[in-house]
Amino acid sequence: MYSMRRWSAKHANKLHHLYSGVESTLYKAAPLLEKIGYDKLEKPFMAVEKVTKGLLFDSQSCGQCTLGSTGMSCPMNCPKTIRNGPCGGVRPNGKCEVKPDMDCVWVVAWEGTQNMPPKEQAIHIVQPALDSRKKGTSAWLREVRLKRQEKAKANASQ
């Protein structure tokens, strides 16, 4: 929902905290999630994620969520799916080159970023190319899994 998307960028800081909170809660619950099995959880998680993130951010479920580095403005709504900042075609009024009725998602992202503390302004970090196989999968579960793997690796090397 477009108006919701704009609201979310305005409240980027609070939403970012909330979002991080969800991720850390899930991380804490990871042993339980592992017991049930990530594969079994994929579908229900994806359903929840799609509804909540779809409502708040018009999330396109790319599966590699980068909202924290885009002022809570989903870059997959950019018609060019640019994940690293605004293209050169942004209109003087801040609207999108391709869709003249839509605010450029990166103009919104930059506004959203201003509402977040400087240390969380990951908008300056180069985002790697997207893995298109992950579209439609749960970014939350992936994040939990990755963190667990990293921790296991760190423990093993100690």
Binding site: K80, I82, E97, V126
Partner: peptide
């Protein structure tokens, strides 16, 4: 990144945008 297909002579074409200028540079 490239201009959007809507601005050209084949607006019905499928835009690719697998990468963006930044990920293509790296």
């Amino acid at each position: 990144s490239g201009d959007g297909v809507q601005s050209g002579d084949h607006p019905e074409a499928k835009p690719v945008f697998d990468l963006d200028c930044m990920s293509s540079l790296s």
